[in-house]
Design a binder for these strands. Structure first.
Ligand SMILES: [Zn+2]
Ligand SMILES: [Zn+2]
Ligand SMILES: [Zn+2]
Ligand SMILES: [Zn+2]
Lengths: 156, 156
DNA sequence: TCAACCTTGTTATACTATAACATATCCCGT
DNA sequence: ACGGGATATGTTATAGTATAACAAGGTTGA
């Protein structure tokens, strides 16, 4: 599978955003309520991961008197629908910019600018899957998160 | 690389433990102080990941009047020496049972019994490394954590 | 009508992690 | 012996992340 989202390349981020939002509406219909939609829009504003409390703060700055569970619920919903991903290493969340094509995502996290690229991977064929099979371990989900420096941040 | 630690297979865990401890002493010398050694021993007691506060509680139950930084410092030291690994998904730590052979670990986490197997992987050749190279992203470290069911827990 | 389900509001609390400062020890060069 | 740097530990306080539990409204369909 190829790279499916390109924060580290020049791209038309506005269409990047509107496409993802359109796909979200298609997937969720009614269930994309106001708060959920607003949180998704926040995540889509950039390719930087947001913590739950970042989201909460933004909601509050918009006049919503929200408590932590509001942010977590919205994020949990988006993750469950495949519209967002949790980045374990950052305790934070990014929007999925290609929910329709996203099956087994892996992430490239720039430790300097905090942008996160989503790439696809083929876990069924890798060394990990082979080892798991040899042990009789049944993999249900794999977290793959690489940290490093994006092209921009390599040249200070 | 092959599977380097076998919690999901029948194995002689006592020697599993003493070997890791011997390697730790060799790597650290003096720097494996009493607390650090004790924490490593705790992690080596089983293949289940322990949270920092689990470690803290055990220290306290042994008469050590420890505060959270004591546990975190010991764990951070062990991780820095390659004697333990942090499991991001669990916010917890496991001992490395083969520190001498451990370069780019990946983990198999059983969601039922919480045991964690460490396996090696070859990130230089995988699809992720290829995508990163295509983007000019320089990977420094990769977290690979698979969740699922170990052989024992698949048959309830 | 009412029951089941989903969504949101709200309070309180649990869990995870680190900052900051104090104290002690050891090793080393003078 | 002295002083200074590096390392390790002790201690207090606080920051950051996440969820339990209960209340209340809305929709849907039997
Ligand atoms: Zn974009
Ligand atoms: Zn960057
Ligand atoms: Zn063992
Ligand atoms: Zn198991």
């Amino acid at each position: 599978m190829m790279v499916i989202s390109g924060p580290f390349e020049r791209h038309d981020h506005a269409s990047c955003r509107t496409r993802a939002l359109a796909q979200a509406e298609e997937v969720c219909g009614d269930r994309l309520t106001a708060v959920r939609r607003r949180v998704l829009e926040m995540l889509l504003e950039s390719h930087v991961a947001l913590g739950a409390y970042d989201v909460l703060e933004r909601l509050r700055s918009e006049g919503h008197r929200a408590q932590p569970p509001v942010a977590y619920r919205a994020l949990d919903f988006l993750v469950a629908q495949g519209l967002a991903h949790r980045i374990e290493r950052l305790n934070a969340f990014i929007a999925c910019h290609r929910p329709a094509d996203c099956e087994a995502p892996a992430f490239l996290i720039c430790r300097a600018c905090n942008r996160v690229a989503e790439t696809g991977n083929a876990p069924k064929r890798g060394a990990l899957a082979r080892d798991a099979r040899a042990l009789g371990f049944e993999i249900e989900e794999t977290v793959i998160e690489a940290q490093g420096l994006c092209p921009t941040c390599q040249t200070p």
